[in-house]
Design a protein around this nucleic acid. Structure first.
Lengths: 93, 93
DNA sequence: CACCTATATCGATGATTGTCAATGTATGTG
DNA sequence: CACATACATTGACAATCATCGATATAGGTG
């Protein structure tokens, strides 16, 4: 594996390397409709809204979460196949 | 997922969240005999020996690598089932 | 014992990161 | 328009981390 490929894969695991981000993914995935807005996520994590938005951005940038704005709300949902794609990064090490 | 479980899982992904550590796993896994010593690993990564030892320790602490000392050398190999266990951490999010 | 080699540990340093308070932006409502 | 709400962005700070040079440890060899 060359350095470029290693950095690419590491960037995904970096997004997963925080307990609060793992909890965000878990909550989004188990939410009804498979989506949740920021206001639903601040309270269970006991974090401020800017911090939650920051974590969500990292997960979106990593290709794990999808962001869709409807009205005033921003709804986050899992990117289809993201988990499988990530496990593939491990299995093909 | 509670905070404790999230921290436990995040600690594994933290070990994977570095390109050089991913390359270490890749090299160890593809080495003949499934093991490699530190001296085989410093050159392909272009890192100093203390830095490589440091990364290896992190991978051992995460339960991904196994360390076996034979003579002056320390041989590192994948922990059997470690990859599968880690992908399980993702699939059960 | 003295010496060399392989590896681990320590201390320091620059870079990255998680968090918060404050502020900005955009959408909806009266 | 004025105001409230939901969210994003900015700036700052403390904590963590990756890396290196120096040093310690431990095993092998003469």
């Amino acid at each position: 594996m060359d350095d470029y490929e290693a950095q690419l894969r590491a960037s995904v695991f970096k997004a997963l390397a925080d307990p609060n981000r793992l909890r965000l993914l878990s909550i989004v995935r188990s939410s009804e409709g498979g989506e949740a807005c920021v206001c639903d996520l601040t309270e269970p994590l006991n974090l401020g809204q800017p911090t939650v938005s920051h974590h969500l951005k990292i997960l979106v940038d990593a290709g794990l979460l999808h962001r869709e704005k409807r009205g005033t709300w921003a709804y986050y949902s899992m990117v289809p196949g993201a988990i499988e794609r990530t496990t593939g990064l491990l299995e093909s090490l």
